[in-house]
Amino acid sequence: MTDTLKIDNLHVSVEGKPILRGVNLTIRRGETHALMGPNGSGKSTLGLVIMGHPKYQVTAGTMTLNGENLLDKSADERARLGLFYAFQRPVAIPGVKLADFLRHAATNVRHPERKEGEELMPMREFRRELKGKMEQLRMESEFARRYVNDGFSGGEMKRAEILQLAMLQPKIAILDETDSGLDADAVRLASQSIAEIGREKMGLLIITHHDKLLEHNPPDFTHVILGGRIVETGGVELANELHTQGYDRIRQAYPDADEANRKMVEKEEAAAVA
Protein backbone atom coordinates (compact mmCIF):
# COMPACT_ATOMS: atom_id res chain seq x y z
CA MET A 1 0.00 0.00 0.00
CA THR A 2 1.26 3.47 -0.77
CA ASP A 3 2.01 5.49 2.33
CA THR A 4 -0.85 7.93 2.71
CA LEU A 5 -1.44 10.90 4.99
CA LYS A 6 -5.14 11.65 5.08
CA ILE A 7 -6.67 14.73 6.66
CA ASP A 8 -10.45 15.07 6.83
CA ASN A 9 -12.46 18.09 7.88
CA LEU A 10 -9.72 19.26 10.27
CA HIS A 11 -10.69 22.08 12.63
CA VAL A 12 -7.99 23.58 14.82
CA SER A 13 -7.97 26.32 17.43
CA VAL A 14 -5.32 28.00 19.45
CA GLU A 15 -6.37 29.46 22.79
CA GLY A 16 -9.98 29.12 21.73
CA LYS A 17 -9.52 31.00 18.44
CA PRO A 18 -10.29 28.90 15.36
CA ILE A 19 -7.48 28.85 12.79
CA LEU A 20 -8.22 25.89 10.56
CA ARG A 21 -11.87 25.43 9.54
CA GLY A 22 -12.30 22.09 7.82
CA VAL A 23 -9.13 21.19 5.94
CA ASN A 24 -9.19 18.17 3.63
CA LEU A 25 -5.91 16.93 2.23
CA THR A 26 -4.52 13.59 1.11
CA ILE A 27 -0.82 13.12 0.39
CA ARG A 28 0.54 9.87 -1.00
CA ARG A 29 4.11 8.74 -1.28
CA GLY A 30 5.62 10.00 -4.53
CA GLU A 31 3.40 13.08 -4.72
CA THR A 32 4.57 16.64 -4.33
CA HIS A 33 2.01 19.08 -2.99
CA ALA A 34 2.37 22.82 -2.74
CA LEU A 35 0.45 24.66 -0.04
CA MET A 36 0.19 28.34 -0.82
CA GLY A 37 -1.69 31.15 0.78
CA PRO A 38 -1.39 34.71 2.00
CA ASN A 39 -0.14 35.62 5.48
CA GLY A 40 -2.33 34.42 8.30
CA SER A 41 -4.14 31.85 6.16
CA GLY A 42 -3.11 28.93 8.43
CA LYS A 43 -0.30 27.46 6.30
CA SER A 44 2.22 26.98 9.09
CA THR A 45 -0.46 25.95 11.54
CA LEU A 46 -1.36 23.05 9.30
CA GLY A 47 2.26 21.92 9.18
CA LEU A 48 2.67 22.15 12.96
CA VAL A 49 -0.64 20.40 13.60
CA ILE A 50 0.35 17.51 11.35
CA MET A 51 3.53 17.17 13.41
CA GLY A 52 1.62 17.38 16.71
CA HIS A 53 2.55 20.72 18.24
CA PRO A 54 0.90 20.79 21.68
CA LYS A 55 -0.11 24.45 21.33
CA TYR A 56 -2.92 23.63 18.90
CA GLN A 57 -6.21 21.99 19.79
CA VAL A 58 -7.87 19.85 17.18
CA THR A 59 -11.57 20.48 17.70
CA ALA A 60 -12.94 18.31 14.89
CA GLY A 61 -11.84 16.09 12.05
CA THR A 62 -9.45 13.20 11.57
CA MET A 63 -5.85 12.74 10.56
CA THR A 64 -4.34 9.35 9.75
CA LEU A 65 -1.14 7.90 8.36
CA ASN A 66 -1.79 4.60 6.60
CA GLY A 67 -5.08 4.42 8.44
CA GLU A 68 -3.48 4.89 11.87
CA ASN A 69 -4.92 7.73 13.93
CA LEU A 70 -2.30 10.45 14.45
CA LEU A 71 -4.29 12.76 16.68
CA ASP A 72 -3.64 10.78 19.88
CA LYS A 73 0.08 10.57 19.18
CA SER A 74 2.87 12.79 20.45
CA ALA A 75 5.30 14.46 18.07
CA ASP A 76 7.99 11.86 18.67
CA GLU A 77 5.57 9.04 17.94
CA ARG A 78 4.59 10.75 14.69
CA ALA A 79 8.25 11.16 13.76
CA ARG A 80 8.78 7.46 14.36
CA LEU A 81 5.81 6.68 12.14
CA GLY A 82 7.53 8.54 9.34
CA LEU A 83 6.46 12.18 9.49
CA PHE A 84 8.96 14.98 9.17
CA TYR A 85 8.44 18.71 9.55
CA ALA A 86 11.17 21.14 8.46
CA PHE A 87 10.70 24.15 10.71
CA GLN A 88 10.16 27.59 9.34
CA ARG A 89 12.01 28.90 12.38
CA PRO A 90 14.25 26.18 13.82
CA VAL A 91 15.22 26.69 17.47
CA ALA A 92 18.72 26.47 18.88
CA ILE A 93 19.67 23.78 21.40
CA PRO A 94 22.84 25.16 22.96
CA GLY A 95 25.46 22.66 24.05
CA VAL A 96 24.09 19.82 21.91
CA LYS A 97 26.14 18.97 18.85
CA LEU A 98 24.18 18.56 15.62
CA ALA A 99 25.84 15.19 14.99
CA ASP A 100 24.89 13.85 18.44
CA PHE A 101 21.35 15.12 18.07
CA LEU A 102 20.97 13.62 14.65
CA ARG A 103 22.43 10.26 15.65
CA HIS A 104 19.86 10.03 18.41
CA ALA A 105 17.07 11.15 16.08
CA ALA A 106 18.08 8.79 13.27
CA THR A 107 18.31 5.84 15.66
CA ASN A 108 14.84 6.48 17.03
CA VAL A 109 13.20 7.08 13.67
CA ARG A 110 14.80 4.03 12.07
CA HIS A 111 14.11 1.81 15.06
CA PRO A 112 10.69 2.94 16.25
CA GLU A 113 10.68 0.18 18.89
CA ARG A 114 13.87 1.45 20.53
CA LYS A 115 13.47 2.07 24.27
CA GLU A 116 15.05 4.96 26.15
CA GLY A 117 18.61 4.16 27.12
CA GLU A 118 19.16 1.49 24.49
CA GLU A 119 22.16 1.69 22.20
CA LEU A 120 22.30 4.30 19.48
CA MET A 121 23.24 3.33 15.94
CA PRO A 122 26.96 2.57 15.57
CA MET A 123 29.06 5.72 15.51
CA ARG A 124 31.14 4.76 12.48
CA GLU A 125 28.19 3.83 10.35
CA PHE A 126 26.42 7.04 11.34
CA ARG A 127 29.44 9.23 10.68
CA ARG A 128 30.02 7.74 7.26
CA GLU A 129 26.45 8.33 6.26
CA LEU A 130 26.38 11.84 7.70
CA LYS A 131 29.60 12.75 5.94
CA GLY A 132 28.18 11.63 2.60
CA LYS A 133 24.97 13.60 3.05
CA MET A 134 26.87 16.71 4.12
CA GLU A 135 29.17 16.54 1.14
CA GLN A 136 26.17 16.26 -1.12
CA LEU A 137 24.73 19.40 0.52
CA ARG A 138 28.16 21.06 0.30
CA MET A 139 28.26 21.54 4.04
CA GLU A 140 31.56 21.81 5.88
CA SER A 141 32.17 18.80 8.13
CA GLU A 142 32.72 21.25 11.00
CA PHE A 143 28.98 21.97 10.78
CA ALA A 144 28.13 18.66 12.48
CA ARG A 145 30.21 19.59 15.51
CA ARG A 146 28.39 22.86 16.04
CA TYR A 147 25.54 23.08 18.50
CA VAL A 148 22.10 22.55 16.96
CA ASN A 149 21.10 25.80 15.20
CA ASP A 150 23.13 27.78 17.75
CA GLY A 151 24.47 30.88 16.06
CA PHE A 152 23.47 29.53 12.64
CA SER A 153 22.62 32.00 9.90
CA GLY A 154 19.14 31.75 8.40
CA GLY A 155 20.51 29.85 5.43
CA GLU A 156 22.55 27.50 7.62
CA MET A 157 19.49 26.64 9.64
CA LYS A 158 17.53 25.73 6.54
CA ARG A 159 20.36 23.62 5.22
CA ALA A 160 20.56 21.86 8.59
CA GLU A 161 16.85 21.10 8.27
CA ILE A 162 17.39 19.60 4.81
CA LEU A 163 20.30 17.58 6.18
CA GLN A 164 18.02 16.16 8.87
CA LEU A 165 15.38 15.38 6.25
CA ALA A 166 17.99 13.52 4.23
CA MET A 167 19.15 11.54 7.26
CA LEU A 168 15.71 10.68 8.61
CA GLN A 169 14.17 9.61 5.28
CA PRO A 170 10.54 10.12 6.22
CA LYS A 171 7.45 8.81 4.47
CA ILE A 172 5.82 12.23 4.46
CA ALA A 173 7.80 15.46 4.74
CA ILE A 174 6.46 18.96 5.26
CA LEU A 175 8.80 21.77 4.29
CA ASP A 176 7.65 25.00 5.88
CA GLU A 177 9.10 27.96 3.97
CA THR A 178 12.35 26.07 3.70
CA ASP A 179 13.31 28.23 0.73
CA SER A 180 13.10 31.51 2.63
CA GLY A 181 16.54 32.59 3.75
CA LEU A 182 18.24 30.54 1.06
CA ASP A 183 19.93 32.07 -1.96
CA ALA A 184 19.36 30.62 -5.43
CA ASP A 185 22.37 28.37 -5.11
CA ALA A 186 21.27 26.95 -1.80
CA VAL A 187 17.75 26.35 -3.11
CA ARG A 188 19.24 24.41 -5.98
CA LEU A 189 21.31 22.32 -3.56
CA ALA A 190 18.31 21.70 -1.33
CA SER A 191 16.29 20.61 -4.35
CA GLN A 192 19.06 18.33 -5.50
CA SER A 193 19.13 16.86 -2.06
CA ILE A 194 15.40 16.23 -2.17
CA ALA A 195 15.87 14.64 -5.59
CA GLU A 196 18.65 12.52 -4.12
CA ILE A 197 16.45 11.29 -1.31
CA GLY A 198 14.00 10.56 -4.10
CA ARG A 199 10.75 12.38 -4.46
CA GLU A 200 9.22 9.02 -5.32
CA LYS A 201 10.18 7.73 -1.87
CA MET A 202 8.16 10.28 0.07
CA GLY A 203 5.16 12.48 -0.04
CA LEU A 204 6.12 16.16 0.05
CA LEU A 205 4.11 19.09 1.27
CA ILE A 206 5.90 22.29 0.39
CA ILE A 207 4.53 25.28 2.26
CA THR A 208 5.63 28.46 0.59
CA HIS A 209 4.64 31.84 -0.60
CA HIS A 210 7.55 32.04 -2.98
CA ASP A 211 8.10 29.50 -5.68
CA LYS A 212 11.83 28.98 -5.50
CA LEU A 213 11.66 25.44 -4.24
CA LEU A 214 8.74 24.72 -6.54
CA GLU A 215 10.77 25.58 -9.65
CA HIS A 216 12.94 22.56 -8.97
CA ASN A 217 10.15 20.48 -7.51
CA PRO A 218 7.12 21.14 -9.70
CA PRO A 219 4.09 20.17 -7.64
CA ASP A 220 1.63 17.55 -8.73
CA PHE A 221 -0.98 19.42 -6.73
CA THR A 222 -1.24 23.02 -5.65
CA HIS A 223 -3.54 23.91 -2.77
CA VAL A 224 -4.58 27.40 -1.92
CA ILE A 225 -5.41 28.01 1.71
CA LEU A 226 -7.40 31.07 2.72
CA GLY A 227 -9.09 31.78 6.05
CA GLY A 228 -8.21 28.34 7.37
CA ARG A 229 -9.70 26.35 4.48
CA ILE A 230 -8.28 24.91 1.30
CA VAL A 231 -10.39 26.82 -1.19
CA GLU A 232 -8.91 25.61 -4.43
CA THR A 233 -6.74 22.76 -5.63
CA GLY A 234 -5.06 22.57 -9.00
CA GLY A 235 -1.88 21.48 -10.71
CA VAL A 236 1.41 23.23 -11.30
CA GLU A 237 -0.35 25.94 -13.34
CA LEU A 238 -2.12 27.17 -10.19
CA ALA A 239 1.22 27.66 -8.43
CA ASN A 240 2.46 29.58 -11.45
CA GLU A 241 -0.66 31.75 -11.53
CA LEU A 242 -0.33 32.63 -7.82
CA HIS A 243 3.31 33.42 -8.30
CA THR A 244 2.72 35.81 -11.18
CA GLN A 245 -0.68 37.26 -10.32
CA GLY A 246 -0.99 36.97 -6.54
CA TYR A 247 -4.13 36.14 -4.60
CA ASP A 248 -6.59 38.76 -5.95
CA ARG A 249 -8.60 36.33 -8.02
CA ILE A 250 -8.74 33.85 -5.13
CA ARG A 251 -9.80 36.51 -2.64
CA GLN A 252 -12.61 37.66 -4.95
CA ALA A 253 -13.77 34.13 -5.70
CA TYR A 254 -14.02 33.18 -2.01
CA PRO A 255 -15.18 36.30 -0.17
CA ASP A 256 -16.17 34.39 3.01
CA ALA A 257 -12.74 32.80 3.36
CA ASP A 258 -11.14 36.13 2.55
CA GLU A 259 -13.13 37.80 5.28
CA ALA A 260 -12.15 35.09 7.78
CA ASN A 261 -8.53 35.51 6.76
CA ARG A 262 -8.69 39.27 7.31
CA LYS A 263 -10.14 38.74 10.79
CA MET A 264 -7.45 36.22 11.68
CA VAL A 265 -4.72 38.60 10.56
CA GLU A 266 -6.30 41.46 12.52
CA LYS A 267 -6.46 39.33 15.66
CA GLU A 268 -2.87 38.27 15.19
CA GLU A 269 -1.78 41.88 14.77
CA ALA A 270 -3.78 42.95 17.80
CA ALA A 271 -2.19 40.15 19.82
CA ALA A 272 1.25 41.14 18.57
CA VAL A 273 0.68 44.76 19.61
CA ALA A 274 -0.63 43.69 23.02
Binding site: M51, G52, H53, P54, S74, A75, D76, R78, A79, R80, F84, Y85, F87, P90, V91, I93, P94, G95, V96, F101, L102, H104, A105, A106, N108, V109, E116, Y147, Q164, L168
Partner: peptide
Protein backbone atom coordinates in the same frame (compact mmCIF):
# COMPACT_ATOMS: atom_id res chain seq x y z
CA UNK B 1 11.69 26.11 26.54
CA UNK B 2 8.76 24.02 25.31
CA UNK B 3 9.69 24.88 21.72
CA UNK B 4 13.05 23.14 22.20
CA UNK B 5 11.31 20.04 23.49
CA UNK B 6 8.89 20.07 20.56
CA UNK B 7 11.74 20.47 18.11
CA UNK B 8 13.54 17.44 19.53
CA UNK B 9 10.32 15.45 19.71
CA UNK B 10 9.56 16.27 16.08
CA UNK B 11 12.85 14.54 15.30
CA UNK B 12 11.84 11.38 17.13
CA UNK B 13 13.21 11.95 20.65
CA UNK B 14 10.85 11.23 23.52
CA UNK B 15 10.00 14.04 25.87
CA UNK B 16 12.32 12.58 28.49
CA UNK B 17 15.15 12.17 26.00
CA UNK B 18 14.58 15.73 24.87
CA UNK B 19 14.73 16.98 28.46
CA UNK B 20 17.96 15.10 29.12
CA UNK B 21 19.46 16.44 25.95
CA UNK B 22 18.57 20.01 26.83
CA UNK B 23 19.95 19.61 30.36
CA UNK B 24 23.19 18.09 29.07
CA UNK B 25 23.48 20.96 26.62
CA UNK B 26 22.91 23.40 29.45
CA UNK B 27 25.89 21.99 31.35
CA UNK B 28 28.03 21.51 28.25
CA UNK B 29 29.67 24.92 28.60
Amino acid sequence: DEELIFYAQARGLTRKEATRLIVSGFFQQ
